[in-house]
C-alpha cells in the first residue's frame, strides 16, 4: 500500500500536465491578479481571486485528471493486472486519491502563501471554516471524478466528460466570473453544484464568515452520494 502510494506520487510528478494544472496554474493566477489588482483595500472581490485559483486547480484535478488516469488504468488493463496479485485494485485507486489529496493540499497552501506573502491578499479570515471547506471540497470534487471514471469506458472519454463537467462547473459555480456579476438564475443553479458550493464556501471563510449550511451540505451530499454511486458502478475491466 505504501509502495503503491510512493509510485503513484512519482508517476504524478512525472506527468508535466498534472503539475502544470494543479500547481503552476493556480499560483500563476493568484500572482497575475495580485499584480493587476494590488489588493489590500478589503473589498469583497478580493476573496474571489485566491479562491478562484484554488477552485480552478482542484476542479481540474478532481474532475479531469483523476478520472482520466483511472479510466486509462482500466483501459490499459493495469487494474486487471492488479487483480491478479494479492493486492486488490481498489488499493491502486486509493493510492491515487491519497496522492491527489496531497497535491490539492500543496496547491492550496501555495496559493495562500504566495497570495498573502508576495501579493498582499488578506489571509483566510476563519481558518477552521477554511479547512473544513477545503476538506469537503476535495472530497466532493474527487467523488465527481470517481463517478466520471465509473461511467467513462476509456481514458479519452473520461477526459472529454471531465473537461465538459469542469467548464460548466466554473461558469455556473462563479469561478470563471464572480458570482456577484452572474445572472441570478445561473448563480442559483451554481449553489447546488459541488464546485459552486466549494467556491462560495471558500470566499465566505476567506472573508472570515462561516459558510452557508447549504454549501457545506451540497459538498457533503455529493461527496457521500457520488462515492457510493461509483462504488456500485465502477468496473475493474
Amino acid at each position: 500500500m505504501t509502495a503503491l502510494t510512493k509510485y503513484e506520487l512519482k508517476l504524478f510528478l512525472r506527468d508535466p500536465a498534472a503539475t502544470l494544472i494543479v500547481l503552476v496554474l493556480p499560483v500563476g493566477i493568484v500572482a497575475l491578479f495580485g499584480v493587476v489588482m494590488s489588493p489590500g483595500g478589503g473589498d469583497a472581490i478580493e476573496t474571489f481571486f485566491p479562491s478562484a485559483a484554488i477552485a480552478l486547480g482542484l476542479g481540474q484535478l478532481g474532475m479531469n485528471l483523476l478520472p482520466s488516469t483511472m479510466a486509462g488504468y482500466r483501459e490499459k488493463g493495469i487494474l486487471r493486472r492488479m487483480a491478479g496479485t494479492p493486492v486488490h485494485p481498489a488499493a491502486l485507486l486509493g493510492a491515487q486519491l491519497v496522492v491527489g489529496a496531497l497535491f490539492a493540499l500543496v496547491s492550496m497552501a501555495l496559493v495562500v502563501a504566495v497570495g498573502v506573502v508576495a501579493f498582499g491578499f488578506g489571509p483566510p479570515g476563519s481558518i477552521p471554516a477554511f479547512l473544513l471547506t477545503f476538506v469537503l471540497g476535495v472530497m466532493s470534487l474527487f467523488a465527481v471524478g470517481l463517478l466520471v471514471a465509473s461511467i467513462a469506458p476509456s481514458g479519452r472519454v473520461a477526459t472529454g466528460i471531465g473537461v465538459a463537467v469542469f467548464f460548466v462547473s466554473i461558469v455556473f459555480g462563479g469561478v470563471f466570473m464572480p458570482v456577484e456579476s452572474l445572472p441570478a438564475f445561473i448563480a442559483d443553479v451554481g449553489d447546488f453544484t459541488p464546485l459552486g458550493a466549494f467556491m462560495r464556501a471558500l470566499r465566505a471563510s476567506w472573508a472570515g464568515a462561516w459558510p452557508e449550511p447549504l454549501h457545506l451540505g451540497v459538498m457533503a451530499v455529493v461527496a457521500l452520494g457520488f462515492s457510493l454511486l461509483s462504488a456500485k458502478m465502477f468496473r475493474w475491466e
Binding site: L11, R14, D15, Y73, G77, R80, R81, G84, T85
Partner: peptide, 13 residues
C-alpha cells in the same frame, strides 16, 4: 504468478 492477456503497467514506470 499471473500474466494476463493485454494488461500493461503505467507508461512512465
Amino acid at each position: 504468478g499471473i500474466q494476463l492477456q493485454e494488461s500493461q503497467i503505467p507508461e512512465r514506470l
